[in-house]
Amino acid sequence: QKVISPESYIKHPLQNKWALWFFKNDKSKTWQANLRLISKFDTVEDFWALYNHIQLPSDLMSGCDYSLFKDGIEPMWEDGRNRKGGRWLITLSKQQRRADLDRFWLETLMCLVGEGFDEHSDDVCGAVINVRAKGDKIAVWTTDYENKDAITHIGQVYKERLGVPPKVIIGYQSHADTATKSGSSTKNKFV
């Protein structure tokens, strides 16, 4: 009789359970009504089963978002874990949709599910990709804009993982500042 090693049939558990959300812009509905939970997963295998099954960001209609958040955190500023938080924001040029968008998003997902920010991964709430005609955006959301050590570590690792050149500056903004901004840009708390 053959003994099968557990490695061949037990799926690889992730540190956290994650929820993937989809937002489709329908102006006749409220923002919250346009936000749908797609699925949750907590293993490497189930992450890929979901990822391989859904459309790439570059194939989505303008106005759509994907959000990947830890189970129990809703992808909105109002959630208790986001209220005092902020985001590292990557803004992409129109040319980058073809070259970088899908690659950046997959790398972002792998940073999250693989706990790529070391002990500071606990500060991560999730990530959001906004597909927009005027320019796409990807952001990693963290829980507390005052946690300087966590935020700077996450920013440095994230920039490296995306392969963003050192001379390109990325900014971290609090959700409170984003929510109350008057012009088109929010001031950076960290760069």
Partner: peptide, 20 residues
């Protein structure tokens, strides 16, 4: 400790059918 997986490890599972 934390279950940390690097990109090479994760990518290695992308096209392996999972036993469910």
């Amino acid at each position: 400790g934390k279950r940390q997986y690097n990109r090479v490890f994760l990518l290695g599972f992308q096209f392996i059918p999972a036993c469910i």
